[in-house]
């Protein structure tokens, strides 16, 4: 069974003009890394937000492990089942890096959610102890991005989604971050969904989807080569 299934999902912003998503059908499996592509404004972030349980679709349903998100606590779903790396990071900028990670662990009720585990996790994404004790505000965009990744991984969720993670990373970090995502899918059997503009990133993915006119469809690999 798919870990995540979208059935005829539509979404319109309140006060926005019309449907951004219009009957999206898709299913996502564990152990696979997906790339979602599409023009700016196509609705990629909107789709990720719905998958993240930040809102419910206006029509259709999103099933996690076969259960409609409408019928479960989306707080718990966000806290435990999914890790999101936002396009705009959405970190607590006034708090220190380490506090961001620990708070996330606390909210998720991670056992052994302690400072040492948080430092280790940050180390893994390339944030050392001295940076970990700085306020998020004082870090560069790329560093904040990596803190966002660490936070998404802090509670070991089944699904990890990232909204244009490569946008803020330089070439070599991009490679290492992509390797990290790839490992999460392959080695840790996670479901990884990455929104990207980069064909390089998409080339790393097992499956590539594209969003067009509010509809999500598989993309032929040959298109990536052009």
């Amino acid at each position: 069974m798919s870990i995540l299934e979208l059935k005829n999902v539509s979404y319109a912003y309140k006060g926005g003009d019309g449907k951004v998503l219009n009957g999206v059908n898709a299913s996502f499996e564990k152990g696979i890394m997906y790339a979602v592509m599409g023009k700016s404004g196509a609705g990629k972030s909107t789709l990720l937000s719905l998958i993240s349980g930040l809102d419910l679709p206006t029509e259709g349903e999103i099933l996690f492990d076969g259960t409609d998100l409408k019928t479960v606590s989306r707080d718990a779903y966000r806290a435990k089942s999914i890790g999101v790396i936002f396009q705009s990071f959405n970190l607590l900028t006034n708090a220190t890096v380490i506090d961001n990670i620990i708070l996330s662990m606390n909210i998720s009720g991670v056992k052994g959610g302690n400072k040492e585990a948080a430092y280790a996790l940050l180390e893994k994404v390339g944030i050392d102890k001295s940076k970990a004790n700085r306020k998020v505000l004082k870090l560069s965009g790329g560093e904040q991005q990596r803190v966002g990744i660490a936070r998404a991984l802090s509670h070991a969720p089944d699904i990890i989604i990232a909204d244009e993670p490569s946008g803020n990373l330089d070439g070599s970090t991009e490679d290492s971050v992509m390797q990290l995502f790839k490992d999460l899918a392959v080695k840790d059997n996670k479901c990884v969904i990455i929104v990207t503009h980069s064909k390089n990133v998409a080339a790393c993915a097992d499956e590539v989807l594209s969003i067009n006119n509010g509809v999500l469809s598989p993309m032929k690999r040959s298109k990536l080569l052009k």
Binding site: S52, L54, S73, D75, A76, Y77, R78, A79, K80, V84, F86, N90, L91, L92, N94, L103, S104, I107, S108, R151
Partner: peptide, 11 residues
């Protein structure tokens, strides 16, 4: 801040 906390799954 509220948005971030809620997104992190705080009730």
């Amino acid at each position: 801040e509220i948005g971030v906390l809620r997104a992190m799954g705080m009730s």
